[in-house]
Design a protein around this nucleic acid. Sequence first.
DNA 1: CGGGGGTTTGACCATAGTCAAAGCACGTGG
DNA 2: CCACGTGCTTTGACTATGGTCAAACCCCCG
Lengths: 246, 246
Amino acid sequence: MTDLGFNAKDCGTCPIQHRAVCARCETDELATLEAMKYYRSFEAGQPIVWSGDRMDFVGSVVTGVASLSQAMEDGRTQMVGLLLPSDFLGRPGRAAAPYDVVAVTNTTLCCFRRKPFETMMGATPHLAQRLLEMTLDELDAAREWMLVLGRKTAREKIASLLAIIARREASLAPERGQDDMSFDLPLTREAMADYLGLTLETVSRQVSALKRDGVIVLDGKRRIVIPDFDALVAETGDDVDGGVFA
Amino acid sequence: MTDLGFNAKDCGTCPIQHRAVCARCETDELATLEAMKYYRSFEAGQPIVWSGDRMDFVGSVVTGVASLSQAMEDGRTQMVGLLLPSDFLGRPGRAAAPYDVVAVTNTTLCCFRRKPFETMMGATPHLAQRLLEMTLDELDAAREWMLVLGRKTAREKIASLLAIIARREASLAPERGQDDMSFDLPLTREAMADYLGLTLETVSRQVSALKRDGVIVLDGKRRIVIPDFDALVAETGDDVDGGVFA
DNA sequence: CGGGGGTTTGACCATAGTCAAAGCACGTGG
DNA sequence: CCACGTGCTTTGACTATGGTCAAACCCCCG
């Protein structure tokens, strides 16, 4: 068993307890969930489920990153979502997975068998309310992404992706100077391309261009430094105040 | 007051009663909603709310079609959703509209003031459950559309849009021969372009091309006839069984 | 008859895709 | 320790798809 980095027995030590689907549950409700949960871990690159597969569980990402994507017969694929820690996987009431789900990095899920979870949802408004809230947020994110996919140039797409990741890192990391953000990019060029609706060559070219123009600095191959976040945002095409999370 | 085509007093005559957010409500719950509802009508082309506006109501589309779209400062716009009869507008718990909402055709909404509706949602699991279900469906639709926007060619995009509308018409209209579908396109070329992430010229060219190739037949400017639905689906790039609603 | 919204078509151009080769970093085995 | 292979990335040359700009068209309506 992999080391989870927290106490698997006790939801009180869970790193996502305040943002996951269970965030609103009372002590007794949590106890019920705690009794039925189990963990599953996946190595980077491993499939979690394939589109069309029967899915007998639902669950939350505890650590790591997973991708949701759709494939066309001829091999074109589009990533339609990134699951980050606290994001929920699966849909109560649906047995077949609609997308391919792949672990982008090493990933641990906190799972529940689907049927018991559905039963509990019916009896636990706190659970349903929280899931509704999370789903509405995801819907907003998906719609924001539609603007990126439908209307932005390749350069703006790259800048948008980097800005999103940078913002997320900033929201997790403790306060540090805004003008010296940096993070490890968890995605390959191909994964970025699948997310952005581009080819990996175009991604590579535009990343190089942003580097050449001083908007980003590469430290090694995967570490990105943002010397001036506002300059990056200016490249996204969004208006300054709003951005992708308007 | 416009003629609504049904009895505004009685939810029992409402055309969307079985699919709207209130579909699961019991008689007494319905009575409460009935007491607080009010109708608003908009002419084709009129704005319903602008992005950033304060929204003090939520509601359901009863008749007509409305669009959700996002605009960039330089005028590029992307439609991120189409609201059809029974679709829900607004988000409990959020005061500011995140998108521009425009009536595409003459449209009637069944509205509730936001605060009382939120209160009722907290006390009425049937309402929250139904809204969750509808939101999950919308999320699926948004993600399906991400594939269209990110990976499909102009021709495939047009075919996908026509196939979606045709399917929807078929699901509403009583059984008729599958090989003779036809419908009025409620969207201008520009609206189609905004939905598909194309320019209106490209839309026009690709519609002409599909007509030239016999995949569709135009009867006047807006009426579309689909002589062979399978042939249309073949143009979407989706595999035959699944399609956009896989 | 004239005007306007929506649409079609054409000529040209720019952006991103395709195909191909080479480079780089890292791990394995000789 | 170095050669080799693999996976990922970069770069180049060329092409194709869809965008831009501009003009004309169509149809309905006043």
